[in-house]
Simulated scan of single mutants.
Amino acid sequence: MILSVLFYSFVVFTVIQTLYSLVFSAFLFDKKKSKTEEVQHPISVIVCAKNEAQNLKKFIPSILKQDYYNFEIVLINDASSDNTLEVMKNFQKKNSNIKIIDVKNIEAFWGNKKYALSLGIKGAKNEHLLFTDADCKPVSKSWIAEINNKFSQEKTIILGYGKYKKENKLVNLFVRFETLLTAIQYFSYAKIGSPYMAVGRNLAYKKSEFFNVKGFINHMHIKSGDDDLFIQDAANNKNTTICTSENSFTVSEAPKSFNEWFRQKRRHISTANHYKFKHQLFLGLFFISKVLFYLLSTILFFLYPWKIMLPIVLAYFLVQFLVIGFSTRKLKEPQLIYYLPFLEIGLLLFQFTIFIVNLYSKPNHWK
């Protein structure tokens, strides 16, 4: 009796995971806008930096070289203690399209990136805003143009892809795989009309959307979430779209160690507690059903006829390899598919560890 319950539970979780995989394939069919529909809007590229002097020197030139007719770069110095402001001023002397917002710490918003971003958004002269981080580099000179082409009268929030630079390290494999899976999910949820998050490394929206929800006011007290919690407030099935063309990607330096990555993901995952209930439910069910799929399949392979178990497990992996395989091709991470089971299991253990640690202590500052 118990064995039968375990088996049928395993079948249910396998079906749930398969359905999720089919939903996650939705972003693979993103349509390109026709040339006749494209309108060039003046764009404000916003970069918020805290102690990022070296990264600014390295990556701001790639934004300045963008092949776009009308854009400004708003550099926000978020109370840096290094020479970030000096680096910004040096760029400004040589480039007339750079504007600097120098933010000083105040007691009410000490160490709060959202406060700094709010000042930068208000200071931007253009209605269409494009956000990235100080350690990000557009992969092409048409980054701004590609994102801009997704704007329309109806679509006012654009979700882009921020990938990580490839390195020959184990942690790098996991970082890039987790980034890929996250993108597959938020792209697909947006595609089916239920956007729930974005990444600040590559995100665009109209300034009016920011003011429509009173900026970050609903979650200003939460140190992280200037991207995903804003999407929770502002995005819906009508005003949000995705941009998945290769030339629209940004690339960042990946965390160099598991400890560094662990600290970074703790901040990100802690914001999920503030998502809408439906998003928490669907994301939680995805994680739990995947854990139970692996757990029950391992147990049942020793207790249940392998001739029944093997086809079910193979069918699961076939769907996984197809959906994630096509996704790795679309998002230009083809090597990751070869390590799929290993990366998936390792990532589950990593995420579970973060969940447990976050129960006992909360990350407070963005830097």
Results as ranks from 00 to 15, higher is better:
K94Y: 08
S96T: 12
N97Q: 05
N97Y: 00
N97F: 00
I98K: 00
K99V: 06
K99L: 08
I100W: 00
V103Q: 05
V103E: 05
K104Y: 01
E107N: 10
W110N: 15
K113C: 14
K114F: 05
A116G: 09
A116D: 07
L119I: 13
G120N: 07
G120H: 11
I121R: 03
K122S: 13
G123Q: 05
A124K: 00
N126K: 06
N126P: 03
H128S: 05
H128Q: 07
L129E: 04
T132I: 12
T132Q: 05
D133E: 11
A134L: 11
D135V: 11
C136G: 12
C136T: 13
K137G: 07
P138L: 08
P138H: 07
P138I: 10
V139G: 01
S140E: 05
S142A: 10
W143I: 04
I144V: 12
E146W: 00
I147K: 01
I147S: 01
N149T: 08
K150P: 00
F151K: 00
S152V: 04
Q153E: 14
Q153N: 13
Q153C: 06
I157C: 01
I158D: 01
I158S: 02
L159K: 07
G160C: 03
Y161T: 02
G162P: 05
K163V: 11
K163S: 15
Y164R: 04
Y164A: 00
K165H: 07
N168P: 07
N168A: 12
N168I: 09
L170V: 15
N172H: 06
L173C: 07
F174R: 11
V175I: 12
V175T: 10
E178Y: 02
T179I: 12
L180A: 09
L180P: 14
L181C: 14
L181N: 11
L181S: 13
A183E: 04
A183F: 00
Q185C: 14
Y186F: 12
Y186W: 03
F187T: 06
F187P: 11
S188H: 05
G193C: 06
P195H: 06
Y196L: 14
A198N: 04
V199C: 11
G200R: 02
R201Y: 01
R201E: 10
R201K: 12
N202Q: 08
L203H: 05
K206V: 10
K206F: 10
